[in-house]
Amino acid sequence: MTVQRTTRLAALVALPAALTLAVAAPSLAAGSGKAYQIDLEQLNDSGASGTVMLSAQGTNKLNVKIEAEGLTPGQPHAQHLHGSTEGIDFHCPDASDDTDGDGILNNTEATKDYGDINISLTTSGDTTPDSGLAVDRMPAADAQGKLSYERTLAVSPDVIEHLKDLHVVQHGIDPNGNKKYDFGKGKSELDPKLPQEATAPTNCGMVMGAAVGSVPVGGVETGSGSTDGMEAPGMFAAGGLTLVAAAGALTVARQRARRSAQNG
């Protein structure tokens, strides 16, 4: 009787630990988030640079913050998340991608490297690729060529899952330095109503340290700005301590049961 009673006590002691872990698992999944930093580096000798923060909120919202400088003053700058949510490898282009040799890396030449538009980073309204050239809803640089942008977007779970595979591109260059877009470099190949200067990429950035595509480098998923896989470490620690405590209680109960059996 003593052995059975002690065993039941041990089971009751272990039950709260099991319940704690069961509750922690869905809470962790619901509260988990990914946060990545992207450094924007110039294209087309634009001198434009910046920093982007991508922060997931649950499974279908994404907060995007951008601070950029060196842009064409007072002009709107189309900006997008480019890349794939299917693990296809894309990356930022360089000057060697200017295949027609005209001295300007246009969007068509660069797209083979950074992929199609996934999300248009507009200031309001639609964010689909259809709004890629909605310059009236794109942020404009101030008189010093600086741009600040923040918006929380509704996105698909695939975007959240593949954030490390996406990258940011801003558009709009000023090669002749007259602080406006003109047709000095011809018409945009995307829309002849727009000058090439308005649509050519001015900078591009990839997630810091992240593997290109969905295949991790060296078998370890990288990404220095990411909390992916390490969200809420305190929760893991608490769960681990609870599990250890439960195991210790169970061990003590068993030892007491054996001693009672021997004494009985």
Rank of each mutant, 00 (worst) to 15 (best):
D94H: 02
G103D: 06
G74V: 01
K65M: 03
D126Q: 01
G223C: 15
A237P: 04
V220L: 10
G234P: 01
G234D: 07
L71P: 14
L21N: 05
P157G: 13
R5Y: 09
N118T: 07
G177H: 08
E221A: 13
V135W: 12
S148V: 07
T128F: 00
L166Y: 10
V135L: 14
G177N: 12
T152K: 11
G229W: 13
A154L: 05
D191R: 09
L153C: 06
Q57L: 13
E150C: 07
E69K: 13
H162L: 02
L121T: 11
D89T: 05
D174T: 06
I104R: 09
T202V: 12
K34N: 12
A140K: 15
A30S: 11
D113N: 15
V220Q: 11
S260C: 04
L105Q: 02
Y36W: 15
I104Y: 00
S96F: 02
D165F: 00
T20N: 03
Q57G: 08
I119A: 07
H171F: 05
A22M: 06
T51L: 10
M1C: 13
G83P: 02
S27I: 03
K65D: 09
V23W: 08
K61Y: 08
L43C: 08
R8N: 12
L21S: 04
L194E: 11
D97P: 00
A29I: 10
I104P: 02
V252I: 14
G218I: 03
A29K: 09
